[in-house]
Design a protein around this nucleic acid. Structure first.
Lengths: 351, 351
DNA sequence: GTTCTAATTGTGTACGTACACGAAGTTATC
DNA sequence: GATAACTTCGTGTACGTACACAATTAGAAC
C-alpha cells in the first residue's frame, strides 16, 4: 500500500492519488504502453488535474540517453571572421544547457569552395547522428544534403540564411528581405540627390541568394518612397582590396553617389577605399566584426546592420535541444531582430 | 575501502582518488570545516587537477534551501505600460531557471506617488528576505531604502536606472548618457536648419534623474557635430494629452523645429498631437509600447529607442540567482544594448 | 482446478549532490 | 586507565525522474 504521506510531489504524488506505483505513472507519461486502459485514463486525469510539470532537473539528471548533433557551417577565416560568432553561440548553449546528453561534432567547410561543403556533408552522413545545424551557403549542395537527411530521418535546422523549397525543422536567421528594407529605411535619410550604389561582393555566386533578397528589400523600400532616386547595382566576385578598389574606381569615374550599401560583411573593404580616397560617401553594411567596427568608430561606415550571429547559433542549439530532450514544439521560423549599429551604440551591443 | 571502479564522475571520483568518502569531499567543497589539514589539501589538489565542475542539475535537485527575493518596481498603468515588461522578464527567468529554490514576492508602487515607494519598501523590510530587485525611481526614497538594505545585509540590484552614490550588487539597465548620444546621432541626420526640441514629460520631478542624463548625452553629441543647431528644452509635469498639447501649442507659436526628442516613453502623446495638427516634425522617443508602435507604423514617430526592458528583468533575476545559488561573481554594471527601432524592423524586435 | 502465457503492475537502483547522523579516532582530564 | 570532549571521517537517505527487472494478476486452455 501507498503511504498516506501527503505533500508529495511529482510522479510520487500522482502515483499516490491513483493508487498505483510510480512506474505505472511513468509508463503513462512516456506512452510506453502496457497499462490497463482504465488505469491509464485515471492517471491521465490526475495528471491533467494536477497540471503536472515534470522537474526538468531530475529528468535530465536521470536520463542517460545521448543525442548526437553535427554542425555544418563555414570555417572562420580572415575574410569570413563572421562565422566565429554563430559557433560561439552554439558552444555557449552547450555550456549553459548543461552538457549532459548532447554530443556535438563540428564540420567546417570553405566558403570559397563548394565541394568542401559536399565533402563535409558526406562525413556527417557516415556517422550516427540525430540532427544537423546547417548554414546552407551553397544552394544546390545544401538542397541535396537536406534531402539525404530527410531520407535518413535526420533532423536539420538552417541558420543565417535559408534556401527555397526546403523546409527545415526550423530556420533561425534574418528575414533577408526585411533586412534590406531596413537598410533602405536608413538609406533614405542619407541619400541626397546623387543616388545610391548597391554593392554585392562575393566569390561564390551561389552564396549570393541572400544578397539578392536583401537587395530586393532595399530597392522596394526606396521605390516606395520615391521613384527618382538613382539606384545603381554592382556585383563583384573578387573580394580582395585591389580588385574591389579597382572596380569602384571604374564605377565612380562615370557615376556619383551619396551612399554605398554593401549587402554583406565585406563593407570594410569599401570603407578602406573611401578612407584612402577621402570620399564624401556614406556607407551602410553588415555585421559586427572587428574589421568593420574600426571603420564605424572612425566614421567611414555610418551604419552597420547586425542580426545577432551568436544568438543564431545559440538558438539553433537550443531548438534542437528542445526538440529532442524536452520534446517541445519548435517554431518553423525564428527570425532574428534587425539591429542597427552606429558609433554611438555599438559598444553596448551584446552579441 | 573504496572500490577501484574507474570512470566514476564528480565527487565520487574525487573521493576515490583521495581515498576518502564523498562526505569528506563535500566538506571541502563547501568549506564546512572538520577536515584534517592534510586531507583537505590533498582533496583540493585533486579537485584542481580534475578541474572539477559540479553538476548543476544534481546540485539544485539536491539542495532544498529556499531563497526569498522581493521585487520593488512601479505598477503597470495606462500611463506606464512599460513596467509590465521588466516584470515579464523576471517571471520568464523564474520559469526557465526552474522554480526550485527561489520564492519571489512583488511589491508594486505608484510612479505618481513617492510615498507608495516608501510604504512598499517597509513591507519588504518586515519580511525575511535575501535580496531585492529595485527600480529606484525616486532618488531620495531609494537611497534611504538601499541603506537600510545594506545594514540588514540584504542584497539589492537596480534595474532601468541607477542613482548616484549607491552601489548595488549590480546595475542592470541602459547607459543613460550614451543612450542620449545615440538619439543625438540619429537626430543629427534628421535636423535640417530649424533645430530641435528636447522634451521631458514626467509628473514626479524626482523621477527625472535619468531624463536629465539622456538630455546631457543628446546635447553633447549635437554640440560635437556643430554648435549652431538650436536646441530647445522643455519640461512638462503634466502627462495628459490636453496639458501636453497646450504646452506644445504655446511653444510652437514662437519656435520652429525639425525634430522633437522625447526623453521617455510618453512620446505617443506628442505623436498624437503631431498627427492631429499634421505637422512636418520628425519624432524620436523611447520604448517599445503598443501606444508608441502604432505611431511608428503610421509614420508620426520616426525612431524609437528601446533598451530591452524584458531582458532587464530577466537578467536582474538571473544575477541574483547566480549570486546566491551558483555563487558566481556578478558584474557590477550590466548595460543593455541601445536598440534602434523603425517601422521596418520593429516587428522583428524580440523583447 | 491446474498450468501456462500474456498483460499488468511494483520494486529497486541509478543519476550527482547535500546533509543529518553516527562511528571511529585523538587528545585532554582526573 | 577510564571517561569525557573534541576532531575527523563514513554511512545512509533524500531530491524527482528513468528504466531494468521482478512480481503479481488475469485470462486462456486443458
Amino acid at each position: 500500500m501507498i503511504k498516506e504521506d501527503s505533500n508529495l510531489i511529482g510522479v510520487k504524488e500522482i502515483a499516490r492519488r491513483a493508487n498505483v506505483s510510480i512506474a505505472t505513472v511513468d509508463r503513462v507519461l512516456h506512452k510506453r504502453g502496457g497499462v490497463a486502459a482504465k488505469t491509464k485514463q485515471r492517471i491521465e486525469e490526475i495528471i491533467k488535474e494536477m497540471d503536472y510539470k515534470p522537474n526538468m532537473l531530475a529528468k535530465r539528471l536521470a536520463s542517460k540517453k545521448i543525442y548526437r548533433f553535427a554542425v555544418l557551417i563555414p570555417e572562420e577565416s580572415k575574410e569570413t571572421e563572421y562565422w566565429k560568432l554563430p559557433l560561439d553561440g552554439i558552444k555557449l548553449a552547450l555550456e549553459e544547457e548543461g552538457i549532459f546528453g548532447v554530443e556535438v561534432t563540428y564540420y567546417l567547410f570553405d566558403l570559397d569552395d563548394r565541394n568542401s561543403f559536399t565533402e563535409q556533408g558526406k562525413k556527417i552522413l557516415a556517422t550516427p547522428i540525430d540532427a544537423v545545424i546547417i548554414a546552407p551557403s551553397f544552394i544546390t549542395e545544401a538542397m541535396e544534403f537536406s534531402k539525404t537527411c530527410m531520407e535518413k530521418k535526420i533532423k536539420f535546422v538552417f541558420i543565417n540564411s535559408d534556401i527555397p523549397l526546403i523546409t527545415p525543422l526550423s530556420y533561425i536567421g534574418p528575414d533577408l528581405y526585411q533586412s534590406g528594407r531596413m537598410a533602405g529605411n536608413i538609406a533614405h535619410y542619407l541619400i541626397k540627390d546623387k543616388g545610391v550604389l548597391v554593392l554585392n561582393i562575393s566569390k561564390e555566386l551561389d552564396a549570393t541568394y541572400h544578397l539578392v533578397k536583401k537587395t530586393e528589400g532595399f530597392e522596394s523600400y526606396l521605390r516606395e518612397k520615391d521613384s527618382i532616386t538613382q539606384i545603381h547595382k554592382l556585383t563583384l566576385n573578387q573580394t580582395d582590396y585591389e580588385s574591389v578598389s579597382l572596380e569602384l574606381e571604374k564605377f565612380l569615374q562615370y557615376n556619383e553617389v551619396d551612399l554605398i550599401f554593401v549587402t554583406n560583411s565585406r563593407v570594410f573593404v569599401v570603407a578602406e577605399y573611401i578612407k584612402e580616397k577621402g570620399l564624401p560617401i556614406k556607407l551602410i553594411g553588415y555585421d559586427y566584426l572587428e574589421s568593420n567596427l574600426k571603420f564605424l568608430e572612425d566614421g567611414e561606415i555610418d551604419f552597420l546592420i547586425s542580426q545577432q550571429p551568436v544568438k543564431q547559433g545559440y538558438i539553433a542549439m537550443q531548438t534542437l535541444y528542445n526538440y529532442f530532450i524536452t520534446s517541445e514544439d519548435v517554431m518553423k521560423i525564428q527570425h532574428m531582430p534587425i539591429d542597427v549599429l552606429t558609433k554611438e551604440n555599438y559598444k553596448y551591443y551584446k552579441l
